[in-house]
Amino acid sequence: MKDQHLSENEIAQAAEFLLDNRYSKLDEDIRKHLKECNDCASEVEFMFAMINGEKRVGKPLPVIKILSYVVAASVVVALFVIFSPNSTPDDSQQQNMIAKTEESTVVDSAQFFTNQGTDTIDNATYVLVEKEPVIIDKSNDDILYAEAAELEKLVERFNSANRGGDITVLSEQVINIELGKPVKLTWKNNDQVELQVELFNNKGKLINNYSTVYNNIVIDNLENGLYYWKLINEDFDLLYCGKIIIKP
């Protein structure tokens, strides 16, 4: 264990590990020190706030870099679609968030304090969206965000409220999310009835379908674009229809 304070290198490293949500992977000696040293912990906390603030502001990447990332991402996605098994993650995903090491139990810090607006006891169902091999071209923004007429009508119908009875949707009707961030859809489901969530792209195509008895669902890995989601009960009644907009 370290007796002296952490060096500036170590402070910077700890802050970046926090930023990348991989604090548990930081050198054990550093983590031990930060558990006990208020001075160093405060420095790391300050540093994290600084670089986190800068990350949010950010600057646009040069066009050539964007295109090279897009091409690389397309290749990876295409390979993933071709070679990976077709599987829908289940609640065991949540167990994966809790990683037990040999000596200690470490929880993924990103999972704490993530619930917003629900007042009932619940678990979150974390799911990954299977990516379609869509090439994102900045010049095709109109295509990415073009509205699907039929789904838009449904969204308008649920403009004022959902007709869920015991199910009340808490999410905003139009959810705007930054690319790379997860989308959380929430509702009140006190009786824990089985609900279906259907996710559509802006061409009206069903991308994915989830089943849950909980109060929310978190969808990850959505690309830039406009999406629609439907909440359906066990009688196949449509309870709600909303929109999700993913932008860089």
Partner: peptide, 9 residues
């Protein structure tokens, strides 16, 4: 939240 994370295990 950051302070809590530094409690580690």
């Amino acid at each position: 939240k950051t302070i809590m994370v530094m409690f580690d295990d």
